[in-house]
């Protein structure tokens, strides 16, 4: 059975999107990307280093065309900054796609929802395919979807925390409320978190630190691939209802007496 992830006009076989930051070295990054089976990777956009132009560019490492490259607006605190960075990313990477990130403070890296909504609305009207990193608040997610975002990406837990899915019920509510894909962005620490997110009905997972900072990144990448596939399969299979008390599985009849 074909079960693809469709975001805007793009069809992806893998439901895992990978960040490219914080790997111990470029080789490990490439191994991990390959092991994860991902078809889309994120990059950041930063000032060109006029003093040191020696480092190999991320685009060179990724071999053009092998992956969809999704630029982000990480580090932006205001809608104004995020819109300009998105426009620069569109020019630099020749893509309308943007992972919109507008954060509220340094400690939590949680979204500034008011600035996020403002930026999302402007970018949608400028023709961008907007994938916003958002809080796990269902009303905000619905507003983002209603204004034309191509997906919504609620956090599971703070970025880089590895805290998993802190508010599973909200993820289920968001899945019920919006018709665009729901991708869990941030908070995944290990494979069971990814599987749980998918079991809750998430359409995909975006993660970075859980793999890049694992002791063995490419092994964790493989674990995440399986977890996303297992969680998705379980979601589609339709789990049994949870009960308080036991329900026997072996037949009662025909039992011996001693």
């Amino acid at each position: 059975m074909e079960d693809y992830l469709k975001i805007a006009d793009r069809t992806l076989r893998s439901r895992l999107i990978l960040g490219t930051a914080r790997y111990p070295n470029p080789e490990t990054m490439l191994e991990s990307i390959a092991a994860s089976g991902t078809e889309m990777v994120t990059v950041a956009v930063r000032r060109y280093n006029l003093q040191d132009q020696s480092s190999e560019s991320i685009l060179g490492l990724l071999r053009s065309g092998a992956f969809h490259v999704l630029p982000n607006t990480a580090g932006c605190y205001t809608a104004r900054e995020a819109v300009l960075l998105a426009e620069l990313a569109r020019e630099a990477l020749e893509t309308n796609w943007i992972k919109l990130e507008v954060i509220g403070d340094d400690e939590t890296l949680m979204p500034d929802v008011m600035e996020l909504l403002k930026a999302a609305s402007q970018l949608v009207s400028l023709g961008f395919t907007v994938l916003p990193y958002t809080s796990d608040d269902p009303v905000t997610a619905r507003k983002l979807a209603d204004m034309g975002c191509a997906a919504v990406m609620p956090l599971g837990a703070p970025i880089g925390s590895g805290g998993g899915i802190r508010n599973p019920a909200n993820i289920t509510i968001i899945r019920e409320l919006v018709s665009v894909p729901v991708l869990i962005d941030a908070g995944i620490g290990t494979a069971s978190h990814a599987a749980l997110a998918m079991e809750l009905g998430a359409d995909g997972i975006l993660l970075n630190t859980a793999i890049s900072c694992a002791e063995h990144p490419s092994q964790m990448a493989r674990a995440m691939k399986w977890a996303v596939e297992a969680g998705r399969a379980a979601f589609l299979a339709g789990r049994i209802p949870e009960r308080l008390m036991a329900e026997r599985s072996s037949p009662i009849g025909g039992m011996i007496h001693a």
């Binding site: 490219t20 930051a21 990059v43 956009v45």
Partner: peptide, 10 residues
Amino acid sequence: IEIVKAVQGG
């Protein structure tokens, strides 16, 4: 003037 490039990011 701001000149930017793509870098590794999450």
